[in-house]
Design a protein around this nucleic acid. Structure first.
Lengths: 338, 338
DNA sequence: AATGAAAATACAATCGATTGTATTTATTAG
DNA sequence: CTAATAAATACAATCGATTGTATTTTCATT
């Protein structure tokens, strides 16, 4: 049929109407009479016209696009956050570009570069586990594009963070194990350069302290909490002999540890009770089902997006951290059934 | 510090060198002496210059970007496919825009429009369950941008599809149930406007026929195979009394049915054996573990991306479907333990 | 030192849409 | 019917980078 490369100039020529009028008509400007608008829209459809956003965005210096950086989309928690982000973004006329850092800081850097050169209007980011410096975020601020952190809060210039109170959630989780009789609780912790994991560890330690339990550095693991890490830590625990509780900073590691321990005939929760974090779908399916912390994932995506859009619209907006509620879901892995 | 809005013209003025030379220097063209290149790169860094891809892409009429449409990123199968896509794309210098249709054809349309107006160089798509017409894909072909289907193959003009042999996989799955003694096997099927689900049903029917089992239309369910659908179908099955096998076209529905049946004290696999499709992570964790079909997800993403990039580079390329191998993973839900 | 080729750089148009200003056309009032 | 105003449309510059062509500079050669 047609070459499919129609521009406003093609419409302009075909109708002998100036391209500025065509542009205004396509944007439904009141400066164009409804008669000419109709003519132009008809011709546009006829030629299969499709606006060229590149040109438009270049001229207006706005892309109506939000960049989202997520460590890994396959994590259930993150994909729910993304759903919340997309819903809110689309509702406000923004498009979303989703990028995975895969917990790799170099990849994160490249992504930031790319989003910047594509001139996204703002960025939602959950930093990678490797990220300890924020240098690569600065060019963004210099361009005046706002950044909002979600899930993993960051103390970076005037940027908002949207997260739960990790200290408190962690404290509750540990307290729960203690009140169920655990005396020797290990902690599966994440990289301590990430405030989130630092706060989770602090909450764990605070609970031990409150209940007068001994704090043992050897009980504090620190790694990326992958499935494999879970198995490695489970093996270590078996060597320790006296461990009777695990508080893991994510479900991934808690679940693989649980499976490993079960395969070694460790009774859960009788011998070792386990609490995870995130409420992954698997946590409710595995046997015994896993006690864990549920976060308002979808809501977190919505809040973060709203905060970002507010800042895009008014860059002078002052910002403060947004803290959402989390809840402890008690299941079989931490509770002796009656 | 600086305003962060540096363009090649700012560099050009600062050094009194024409912007065309600056552009060439930044692109490492041999037409610029290494001495000037050095000066320009230094000044660029100093000014915090960041290329404006909008301008560049507008001029060159190329975005080096691939659009990916996925029904739902939270499905493990799809997030693995995406990993394969990203790896291959980045390796070849392409960026990736990931979009979720959420199985909604209207959303799919909007996404296609958006990708087109952003002039992506090509699209990888797994159509939504609601998609039955390909009208909304045509503008793309008219613009000369290639489309490659993955997972859910489509017969659309000169477009490649990358998938497994769904008929064969389905046949094997059903045959497996039959050889384990099942006589009354129901099928959890997806929308029949999708070739993938049609082929899975055909494979199921073919196996029944080969082994002389009665084909019963009431045994063939058809819906979107959600978690909820799984429960609804499980309830129906209990009413039927005589069902002794389920072959589900995805794990999601198989798993929720399994859980429901278990809660009703149905013995699996003794009373009812179950086979799913996709090898979701949960399938190996649930008890009894679920027999399922594993697809080469990551590989599928890689193959589809390579095919797309080949076509972007040479639009005249003739195309043919790419079929990958799948495998039946036998677990406890279909096999009586010795 | 003059010549010519090669190397380096400058000029200018272009991609497609937007937008402030100017001009034309239509409408209303006196 | 004309002047004044409003409505509709046209003109032209612009966003930032790219690229074919033209011009200048450099350098080797005679």
């Amino acid at each position: 049929m047609n070459s499919g490369k129609a521009t406003i100039h093609d419409i302009s020529k075909a109708l002998n109407i100036d391209s500025s009028t065509v542009s205004r008509a396509l944007n439904n400007s009141p400066r164009v009479s409804s008669k000419t608008k109709a003519k132009i829209l008809t011709k546009a459809a006829e030629l299969g016209y499709q606006r060229n956003s590149l040109a438009s965005n270049l001229r207006t210096n706005k892309t109506n696009t939000i960049g989202v950086i997520v460590p890994r989309i396959s994590r259930s928690f993150f994909s729910s956050v993304i759903s919340g982000i997309e819903e809110t973004a689309y509702k406000n006329g923004y498009n979303v570009i989703i990028c995975q850092s895969l917990e790799d800081v170099n990849r994160e850097k490249k992504i930031m570069d790319n989003l910047l050169s594509n001139r996204v209007d703002g960025v939602l980011i959950s930093i990678s586990m490797q990220t300890s410096s924020y240098e690569h975020l600065k060019p963004f601020r210099n361009h005046g594009a706002p950044i909002v952190f979600y899930d993993r809060p960051c103390n970076f210039e005037g940027c908002t963070s949207v997260s739960i109170d990790d200290f408190e959630a962690s404290f509750k989780a540990t307290e729960h194990l203690i009140s169920n009789g655990c005396k020797n609780i290990v902690h599966f912790g994440g990289p301590q350069n990430i405030a989130l994991y630092k706060n989770r560890k602090k909450g764990y330690l605070a609970a031990l302290e409150k209940y007068g339990l001994e704090i043992n550095e050897i009980f504090c693991f620190e790694n990326e909490l992958s499935e494999n890490d879970g198995v490695i830590m489970a093996k270590e625990i078996l060597k320790m002999k006296n461990v009777d509780g695990i508080y893991a900073a994510n479900d991934t590691s808690a679940i693989s540890a649980l499976q490993y321990l079960k395969s070694k005939d460790v009774k859960i929760p009788e011998d070792i009770a386990i609490v995870g974090f995130n409420n992954d779908p698997i946590s409710s399916v595995i046997e015994p089902s896993l006690t864990t912390i549920n976060q308002p994932d979808f809501e977190m995506g919505r809040m973060a997006t709203n905060a970002l859009i507010d800042q895009i619209k008014d860059t002078s907006l002052s910002v403060r951290p947004i803290v959402l509620k989390s809840e402890l879901i008690v299941r079989s892995s931490s509770k002796v059934m009656p």
